[in-house]
Every structure is written in C-alpha cells, then in structure tokens.
Write a protein that binds this DNA or RNA. Structure first.
Lengths: 149, 149
DNA sequence: ACTAATTCTATAAAGCCAGTAGAGATTATC
DNA sequence: GATAATCTCTACTGGCTTTATAGAATTAGT
C-alpha cells in the first residue's frame, strides 16, 4: 500500500499540471477540488517544493506551480520522495540499499530472487509513467494489455 | 517494503518445508538457523497456525510442521496473512477492497489506472510462486528473463 | 507427581502515519 | 503603511504497526 500522502501528492501534481503555464494554484483550491485536508496538503506541497518538483510564491495571490514539465516528473520520483524506497526489500532498493543482516548470502537468497522478479515490472511502469501521462489519460498502454489475459 | 514479519514468515515456512515429513521443527531451532528473534518468531508461527498453514504440537518435544504441501503455499497467501493486502491502493485490493472516499470516479481515476498496471505482474509472480519453488531454488523463471533487457 | 521443554497469551516500548493547530514570514492590494 | 491572503515552519495528538518481552498454559518423559 502506498501512503495517503503519496496519493495526495500525485493528485496535487496532476492538478498543478493542468493550470495555465505561468499562473499558480493555491493550496486551498487544490484541497477543495481534490478533497484533500488543507493543512495536510500544505505539508505535502512543502516537501515537493524542497525536493525541487514545484515552486511556490508566498503571500497574497501566491500559490504553487510545477518547476519541471509534467512529462519529466515520473511516478517513481514522487513515490520515492514521499514514501521512500519502492523496493520490497532493502537489499533490492536503488536509493536505500542495505544488506539484510540476517541473510546468509544475498545472491543465493531465494526470497530475494522472487521479489527481484516482482519489483522489476513495477519499476518499469513507475519510471516510465509521468504526471503528464496521467493528466492526459494516457495511463493505460494498450500494448501491455495482451499479457493481462 | 514488506514487513520484517513477512520475510521471517517466508523463511520459516521454507525451513519447515525442508524437515522430514512427519517430524516437527522447534521454534528455537528455526530461530537459530534463520537468525530470527525467537520470541518474535513464536508469534509469527502462531499467526501462520491460526491461518491453517502450519500445525503445532505443544509441550516438551513439540514443534511446528507444515499443514499443507509446500507446493500449495504461495507467496501471496503468506504476504496477505502477515502484511495484509498486496494492492498498492485500497480500491485495487482483492481481499480488502475499499472505495477511495476522496475519489470522484474510480473507473476514470488515472492514479488507479497506473497502479492497476503495476500490481498486475506483481500478483502474477506472487500467486504463482510457492514455498516449494523457493525451497528448491526454482525462484527464477528463465522464460521471464528476456523482458528484463 | 515432578521437571524441563515448548507453545500460547497478554502486554509494553518505540516508531510511524494522518491529521490538526497555530505562530511567523512574505506578498499584493488598497 | 495597513490589511488580508497565502505560504512556511514547528509542534502536537491519537491511533496504528512493528518489534519485542515476560509469564502462563500445556505436554513428554521420568
């Protein structure tokens, strides 16, 4: 399960990608239209700002706007910023690799092998899907449907 | 990230799958060989017992044994028992479906679409891989390697 | 019946997550 | 400059999860 914060962050970024370039959206507007608790959303946007994904203008008529094109913000980036590693095991993480202290040999660990297979397609989707894709409704890739049968 | 409990549960089940049929393994033995805190392992085995995956014999010379063949215990079953839903969003869960209260329309939700694509291959691996596969080192399926390139 | 071994039950400590509260800083507008 | 709107920052709370511990209940063997 991804955290609620991560889901809110994705929704907020999609909302920001839809405002006219040059303008800014305010926390309270996003909170209302996306049904996100306002004070909670403030914290989330702040984290996104500190990560360099969005920029802000303070004061009256301030607000938030994307700092990068929506097509360059991937789901993986957002999830890693908010929830931390995407990998199911520390020994499979890219951004926070850690050896399992209780594991005899990482390269023969059968549990690791199984989850290595699990995480690989997940990463492919999350690294390739951007906020722009989601905003445009391009989330489903028809080429991938056949394997679902 | 899966919980430590889930990883320990998988390792314990693999260990149990390796003892001679009819006999039982004791918590302390598994704890030692698998480097799992003993008292913590007791709770995990108890949960697996209440789920009907293993059976126990109490008292002196007691212990645990698998209740079902290792080839019929999937990774997905274990993860659901210990960690709960595998799905990244409540609205994509099989065992604990819940509508997102803050979601306008589930079937057009772009975030849901992306994660639907993410969870599908994950489920395929976890539902098809069994404790017996892991114990035998059959965790990697060679047919799946080409798509990793 | 006693003892040692073992599972089982209940509870505790620490940390994480979701959400709330409020004071302070910055800006546009009048 | 005063005011109102907005972002920024810190702290806090309640509930849940994770990890772990202490002790009660049960059993085999003598």
């Amino acid at each position: 399960m991804i955290s609620r914060q991560a889901k809110y962050a994705l929704r907020a970024l999609i909302a920001l990608s839809r405002i006219t370039p040059g303008s800014a959206a305010q926390t309270s507007d996003i909170a209302t239209t996306e049904k996100i608790p306002k004070k909670f959303l403030e914290q989330i946007l702040l984290r996104l700002k500190n990560q360099g994904m969005v920029q802000s203008r303070r004061g009256n008529r301030g607000g938030y706007a994307l700092l990068k094109p929506a097509s360059e913000i991937t789901f993986a980036q957002v999830l890693r910023t908010i929830d931390g590693p995407i990998a199911p095991l520390p020994c499979l993480s890219i951004i926070a690799y850690a050896r399992c202290e209780d594991c005899k040999d990482e390269f023969t660990c059968e549990i690791r092998k199984v989850f290595a297979r699990v995480i690989e397609p997940t990463r492919q989707v999350l690294e390739r899907t951007t906020i722009a894709d989601a905003a445009a409704g391009r989330a489903i890739d028809l080429e991938s449907l056949p394997q679902m049968a």
